[in-house]
Amino acid sequence: MEELPDGSYRITARLPVEDLADLFRVELPQDDDVETVGGLLARAIGRVPIEGSETVVGELHLLAERTGGRRNQIDTMLVRRVEEPADAEEAEADEPAPATEPEDEERAERRARRKREKKEAAAAAAEPEDVDADAAGRLSS
């Protein structure tokens, strides 16, 4: 772990998420499937990260810096605290961090569309079916 002059840190992608949270004194999303900072980045962007992949998770900006090893996995990352917007209107807490590559944007749109479709299907399934009066009468007799 190396602190850089701008206040960011160069860390190993294998650093446990809890250690990163302690380092920056922040709360990060809890996920039983994610143990390392590299895994946190992969989960946030929805794919295996490559050099230059970046996103914001909680209050932290994560950037995949360098790959290494036989499998060419992300080896080091740059992490910095996200600057708070000066104007509250600029803050959009409900929206995910902007995608950094066109394919990320397309995936995010597809994911949002699937989520909407699931909600609509669940709402339609929860609505009672119309029963005509004759059928209702036969059921009650």
Rank of each mutant, 00 (worst) to 15 (best):
2 E>A: 13
3 E>Y: 05
4 L>E: 14
4 L>C: 12
8 S>R: 01
9 Y>L: 08
12 T>P: 08
14 R>Q: 12
14 R>S: 10
15 L>E: 03
18 E>K: 13
19 D>W: 07
20 L>H: 02
21 A>G: 09
22 D>I: 15
23 L>G: 02
24 F>M: 05
25 R>Q: 13
27 E>Q: 10
27 E>C: 10
30 Q>H: 14
30 Q>R: 08
31 D>F: 05
31 D>P: 05
31 D>Y: 05
33 D>W: 03
33 D>Q: 08
33 D>F: 06
34 V>K: 00
35 E>Y: 00
37 V>D: 03
37 V>H: 00
38 G>Y: 00
40 L>P: 00
40 L>R: 00
41 L>R: 00
41 L>H: 03
41 L>T: 06
42 A>Y: 04
43 R>E: 07
43 R>N: 08
44 A>H: 01
45 I>C: 05
45 I>K: 01
45 I>S: 01
45 I>N: 01
48 V>G: 04
50 I>F: 01
50 I>M: 11
50 I>Y: 03
52 G>D: 14
53 S>F: 01
54 E>T: 13
58 G>K: 00
59 E>L: 15
60 L>I: 06
60 L>K: 04
62 L>R: 00
63 L>F: 11
63 L>H: 01
64 A>K: 02
65 E>T: 03
66 R>C: 13
66 R>N: 12
67 T>L: 14
68 G>Y: 05
69 G>L: 11
69 G>Y: 06
70 R>E: 12
71 R>V: 09
72 N>M: 13
72 N>A: 14
73 Q>W: 06
73 Q>E: 06
75 D>S: 15
75 D>R: 06
76 T>E: 11
76 T>R: 00
76 T>H: 02
80 R>I: 13
80 R>Q: 14
81 R>C: 02
82 V>D: 02
82 V>K: 09
83 E>D: 08
83 E>K: 09
84 E>L: 10
84 E>P: 04
85 P>T: 12
85 P>M: 11
86 A>I: 11
87 D>H: 08
87 D>F: 05
88 A>N: 14
88 A>W: 03
89 E>P: 04
90 E>R: 04
91 A>L: 15
94 D>F: 12
94 D>N: 05
95 E>Y: 12
96 P>V: 09
97 A>E: 01
97 A>S: 10
98 P>G: 12
99 A>L: 11
99 A>Q: 13
100 T>V: 13
100 T>P: 02
101 E>G: 02
102 P>F: 02
102 P>T: 07
102 P>M: 10
103 E>Q: 15
104 D>S: 09
104 D>V: 07
104 D>E: 14
106 E>V: 12
106 E>K: 10
108 A>F: 10
108 A>I: 04
109 E>T: 14
109 E>A: 15
109 E>L: 15
114 R>F: 11
115 K>L: 09
115 K>A: 07
117 E>I: 15
118 K>Y: 04
119 K>H: 15
120 E>Y: 07
120 E>R: 15
121 A>E: 10
121 A>K: 14
122 A>R: 08
122 A>D: 06
123 A>S: 05
125 A>S: 14
126 A>F: 03
126 A>S: 01
126 A>C: 03
128 P>V: 09
128 P>T: 10
129 E>N: 04
129 E>D: 13
130 D>E: 15
131 V>R: 09
132 D>A: 05
132 D>M: 11
134 D>Q: 07
134 D>F: 03
135 A>H: 13
136 A>V: 08
138 R>E: 03
138 R>S: 01
138 R>Y: 01
139 L>H: 07
140 S>V: 12
141 S>G: 04
